[in-house]
Each structure stands twice: as C-alpha cells, then as structure tokens.
C-alpha cells in the first residue's frame, strides 16, 4: 500500500511533481504512465525517501519509508538500473546490500538464480548490458522479499523474453497480495502488464483507474463501415443517434453505436455492406489524447519554441 498526500517536489522554480495524491492498493499491478520528464521517477524517489518532498507526505505500508525497521523487507525498488557501483561484481553488490539487513547469503544466490544472472554473477557490473543491469536491479529489489515493489521502467532494455519474464513476475507478485507499482512511458506496455493505471503529465495526475476504464474514458469505441449507399446509410445511422464522420467516399466512421445495430439497420433497409468492423480505441491514441499538452519534451517542426508555454494545458 502506497499513499501519497498532496505530494509536491520543486527544484528551484521548476515543479517536478505538483500536489499529487493517490493510493496504490495491494494485490494488483499499478502502472505509472507518463511521458519522459512527467515526474514518475521523482515521485518514486520520494516514496523511497531518497528525495525530500517540498511539501506533502507519502507513506508505504502506513509509514514513511525511512521509519520502517527493515526497509528492504517492506519495499524493494528498482529506481535506476545504474544504482550499482560499476567496479563491483553483481554478487558482491547484492551481498553488500544483504549485509545491511543480515539477509543470509542463501537468499542472495536465490535472487541471482531467479533473475537469471547466475552465469554473470561474478563479472563486474561495469560490463553489463542494459538488460543485465535491469535484472540485477530487480534482483536487489527482491532481496528482502518485500511486500511492496517499486519498479521504474523495469522493461527498459530487456529483450522480448525478458519483457515476458517481468510481466509474469509482477503478475505473480501481485497475486500473492503484494503491492506492485511500476512505471513506463509506453502505453502498450502498461496495457499488457498493469491492472490499474495512474497517468501523470507535467507533475499532475491526469487519469487514474482500471486500465480499460482509463482508455474508454478517453475515446469511445468506433465502428468502420463501407457501403455503395453510404450517404443513405449515414442518414439512417444519424437518425439512430450515431456520430458519423466520413474519411473517404463510401466509407463511414461511426461512434456511439455498436456493429450489431449497424448491421441490423442496414439489413432492415436492404443496404449492402462491404465492410463492417468494430474498432476499439487504439492504446496509443488514448495515451496521446491523455497526455496531449502534458509532454515535457516535444518535437514540433512548425513551432519556433521547443516547448509548449507553461499553463496552456492547465
């Protein structure tokens, strides 16, 4: 359980996290979604007591992180795959972490096995690929068998097999009743991994709730239809309450109506259909419309200013 209350972090005059409140419940995987620079990592560092909030509070399992008697057993975090001294071997790194909590060496070897690092455990971390670094980060997060896991961009740099592994891992951890909070800037990744979504943009929460609900709230499902008598059909559908747009002659995009109703109406009036396809809103579309104006670094060839002026999306 992670609870943030009016959490704010400012660096000088730049507000990284702007008065956000949320609760992350145990037993499910919560995705923290937002464009780069939206405040995801800052929020996670504040949860871990690494960055001090400018104002507001955040607790994990009922207490600020630093007040826990055995912090590694409460929260395991992958904040940064690079939070490891490059001159040390993976196993040495894990053993130094384990020593602080008197965690037995057997557990160190267990997490090494679990993350598939056995063959490189004695190699220096400096030579690790991004994916191996991520695995080591996840291994150290799992070290204390924590009730809450915080993973910042865990699949970043992993190969498809590694991505699958992370998905299965977080699923099984959540099914055990643990709290799993992971961030990503990829909507498609979140849709496949998370149950719940917390969408952040420019330091503010834009949307929150079950994944499908967040997507649906942004764009309703659409139906595409093609017919030689499109104009006639459009009038019928509009009379039935559908929103009709046309992108090409003979083709209609419909909203506010489902495919079954379209088929029945067409049949009743003897109108032939050449295509009738329900189309659920694309995840990326949903994401783009969610975070529109909340993107910190955008590429815009027409604008002279590289970023959108502050306040435009407030």
């Amino acid at each position: 359980m992670i609870e943030a209350h009016q959490l704010t972090k400012r660096y000088g005059d730049k507000t990284a996290v702007d008065d956000i409140s949320f609760t992350i419940a145990p037993g499910s995987v919560t995705g923290f979604l937002g464009p780069n620079g939206a405040g995801k990592s800052t929020t996670m560092r504040m949860i871990m007591g690494l960055d001090r909030p400018t104002s507001g509070t955040v607790t994990v399992n009922g207490k600020p992180y630093a007040r826990h008697r055995a912090p590694l057993a409460e929260v395991g975090a992958l904040l940064d795959a690079k939070a490891v001294h490059t001159g040390r071997s993976a196993r040495s790194h894990l053993r130094t972490m384990a020593a602080t909590h008197n965690i037995p060496v057997a557990r160190v070897d267990e997490v090494i096995e679990m993350t598939g690092l056995a063959t490189v455990a004695h190699k220096r971390v400096g030579g690790f690929s991004l994916g191996m670094g991520q695995r080591l980060g996840i291994a150290s997060a799992m070290l204390g068998d924590p009730r809450t896991l915080i993973l910042d961009e865990p699949v970043n740099g992993l190969d498809p097999e590694g991505v699958q592994w992370v998905r299965r891992l977080v699923r099984s951890l959540a099914d055990e009743g643990r709290t799993v909070f992971l961030s990503s800037h990829l909507m498609s990744e979140m849709a496949q991994t998370a149950d719940q979504l917390l969408v952040i943009g420019r330091g503010r929460i834009i949307a929150a709730g079950p994944v499908q609900q967040v997507i649906d709230s942004v764009s309703a499902a659409a139906v595409r239809v093609r017919s030689p008598r499109a104009t006639e059909l459009a009038a019928l559908l509009e009379a039935d309450g559908a929103a009709v747009t046309s992108s090409a002659p003979g083709a209609l995009e419909l909203r506010g109506i489902d495919a079954e109703r379209v088929g029945e109406l067409a049949c009743a009036h003897g109108i032939a259909l050449h295509e009738l396809s329900p189309r659920s809103a694309s995840l990326e579309e949903a994401y783009m419309s969610l975070t529109q104006g909340a993107v910190e670094y955008r590429s815009d060839v027409t604008a002279t200013a590289p970023t959108v002026p502050k306040g435009e999306n407030r």
Partner: peptide, 9 residues
C-alpha cells in the same frame, strides 16, 4: 504476504 526472508537490520 508475510516475507519469508529473515531481514533484520
């Protein structure tokens, strides 16, 4: 979920 790993700093 109660941690099964003995962790005592």
């Amino acid at each position: 979920a109660r941690p099964t790993v003995h962790a005592r700093p």
